[in-house]
């Protein structure tokens, strides 16, 4: 085990995959000598050269498209978007192209491409640099979506994503990069589509992922002091969703809260709650709840942003209201 940051864990995953697979190459803005604005690609250019750690112009649509073309003929591009918000600039290439080409070709081509991007708020970056897009991306058949919350998961899931053989949207969070954690050394991977119970508990199931997963764990500590033992599930993969782990947990607890930073409206919380009602209608002893961003663009001032995005205290309050 080594105790490293989330950004370092991602860097290790990229380095290891590039070492063992010459088909893997990176593209993105300022990822070369600059090492990426969050240092995820730090020093990789020295080891692998500017061809495989390729700086791009500020033109997301074309370089995501170039990644698709390179993937179709056998390479394994890992494309970095500086901010997830810029996925909208490349939306046609992600949604109309990457997600659909395998299907539309009757399986004769595939797109083994990873699009990495950091998203989310909490840093005062404003409404065009703080959004969370997993909800609407999950609406698109053909995309795998992962969103790790810890350094170990980040490394293991990035390796799985590069090997997945299908387009993966790899969601990082700008406020997770400096979080440290124990990461196994050497080659290991975390399977796509598998949630993990990050904390055991018997009273309520809290489902979350990415940064709000850490908020849920923090809230669970507070709740424990009040006599409520929360089970905290880290989805890790958004699509495909691991409903089995959620259903098993809810069967034991009878209560469900879903927490995410993406806007609550028509969000993953609604989807998970609907599926629990469809697939195990008798398990809930209390109406379930969801917490997400309130339905306004993400503001800059801290007092405003904190009011819009779910906070640990909001999780505690939501859980207490269910007892």
């Amino acid at each position: 085990m080594s105790n490293i940051t989330y950004a370092q864990a991602l860097n290790e995953a990229l380095r290891e995959e590039m070492k063992v697979d010459s088909r893997v190459f990176l593209m993105g803005e300022d990822i070369g000598h600059h090492g990426g604005i969050f240092r995820v690609t730090k020093d990789l250019i020295d080891e692998f050269g500017a061809d495989r750690v390729r700086d791009t112009p500020i033109s997301e649509s074309s370089f995501v498209g170039v990644g698709i073309g390179a993937a179709m003929v056998g390479l394994r591009p890992v494309v970095e978007l500086l901010f997830m918000d810029f996925a909208l600039v490349a939306a046609d290439q992600i949604v109309n192209q990457a997600a659909k080409l395998r299907y539309m070709s009757g399986g004769t081509v595939s797109i083994p491409m990873v699009v990495r991007a950091q998203q989310g708020g909490g840093r005062g970056n404003g409404a065009q640099h703080s959004q969370s897009f997993e909800t609407w991306l999950a609406q698109i058949p053909g995309l795998i979506i992962v969103a790790p919350s810890t350094p170990a998961d980040a490394k293991g899931l990035l390796k799985s994503s590069i090997r997945a053989g299908n387009p993966v949207i790899f969601i990082e969070h700008k406020l997770l990069y400096n979080i440290k954690g124990d990461v196994p050394e050497g080659d290991y991977s975390i399977p796509i589509g598998k949630a993990e119970i990050k904390r055991d508990g018997r009273d309520i199931t809290i489902v979350s992922y990415s940064r709000t997963l850490l908020f849920a764990l923090e809230a669970a500590k507070t709740l424990a002091q009040k006599g409520i033992e929360a089970e905290v599930i880290d989805l890790r993969t958004i699509e495909p969703l691991d409903m089995n782990t959620i259903l098993e947990s809810v069967k034991g607890t009878g209560r469900l809260l879903v927490v995410h930073e993406a806007h609550s409206n028509c969000g993953l919380g609604a989807e998970i709650i609907a599926r629990v009602y469809e697939q195990a209608p008798d398990t809930l002893i209390m109406p379930p709840r969801r917490l997400g961003a309130k339905h306004v663009p993400i503001p800059v001032a801290e007092s405003l942003e904190d009011a819009v995005l779910p906070q640990p205290a909001d999780i505690v309050n939501a859980v207490e209201a269910m007892f």
Partner: peptide, 12 residues
């Protein structure tokens, strides 16, 4: 939509 794909194949 397919123009960057050809560019990507060329890059590969």
């Amino acid at each position: 939509g397919g123009v960057p794909h050809a560019a990507g194949a060329a890059l590969a």
